[in-house]
């Protein structure tokens, strides 16, 4: 995970909070949060080798397909749920958002921006975007629900979800000026802190 991204998320995570990270990968974000914020963290991951890496790091992890539902964690009183770069891979991103906000007061969501100028250029040339951030061809991508920054913020409005904070990252992974002036065109990634 890009350093800037984990720094932002780090800022939003309260000390000693209870955190669940959906699509936690090798557990490095949680490991960092455990070390720096002393959180009680759980990862959710579907890939066995990634799970193995979490266990090696001492990061508690749960094998699960997020698409099959996350309702069972609703009784666990999480302070924060995180879904970094995964929501666009889900069958129902809107339902996932609802559920994350049912099981924790706040959630952090990061997503790639299909409105990024490079993507638009690709489309203008008549082809599906293939960029460094979205490197897979249309037939093999896991990103089945890509959207633009505008689309996502509209969804938040439609679902009565409050955007408490947001940061836009440029292609260097920094929160650059252009990306913050016109994120829909210049940001490659949106990072959101959401609340119901």
């Amino acid at each position: 995970m890009a350093r800037e991204l984990s720094k932002i998320i780090n800022n939003w995570v309260p000390k000693e909070s209870k955190v669940i990270d959906f699509g936690c990968g090798d557990g490095s974000l949680l490991q960092k949060l455990i070390q720096t914020k002393n959180v009680l963290g759980y990862g959710v991951e579907i890939n066995n080798s990634k799970i193995e890496e979490c266990i090696a790091k001492g990061v508690p992890v749960i094998k699960q397909d997020i698409d099959k539902g996350i309702n069972e964690f609703e009784s666990s009183n999480f302070d924060l749920s995180i879904m970094a770069r995964s929501i666009q891979c889900l069958k129902s991103p809107n339902l996932a958002l609802e559920r994350m906000l049912n099981l924790s007061k706040r959630c952090v969501v990061t997503l790639p921006n299909l409105g990024y100028w490079r993507c638009r250029l690709n489309l203008a040339s008549g082809k599906m975007p293939v960029t460094p951030e979205l490197p897979s061809s249309w037939y093999e991508t896991k990103n089945i629900h890509l959207c633009t920054i505008k689309d996502f913020e509209q969804l938040c409005i439609d679902q009565n979800i409050k955007i408490k904070d947001k940061v836009f990252l440029n292609s260097n992974g920094d929160s650059g000026i252009l990306a913050s002036i016109n994120p829909n065109l210049f940001a490659i990634e949106g990072v959101y802190l959401l609340e119901k």
């Binding site: 209870k18 009680l40 759980y42 066995n48 799970i51 979490c54 266990i55 508690p60 992890v61 749960i62 094998k63 699960q64 069972e72 964690f73 009784s75 666990s76 009183n77």
Partner: peptide, 15 residues
């Protein structure tokens, strides 16, 4: 596993 999480126990679940 769910009961463990509800009790803030460090716990992993693998299938």
């Amino acid at each position: 596993q769910i009961a463990a999480i509800n009790n803030n126990i460090k716990s992993s679940y693998m299938v």
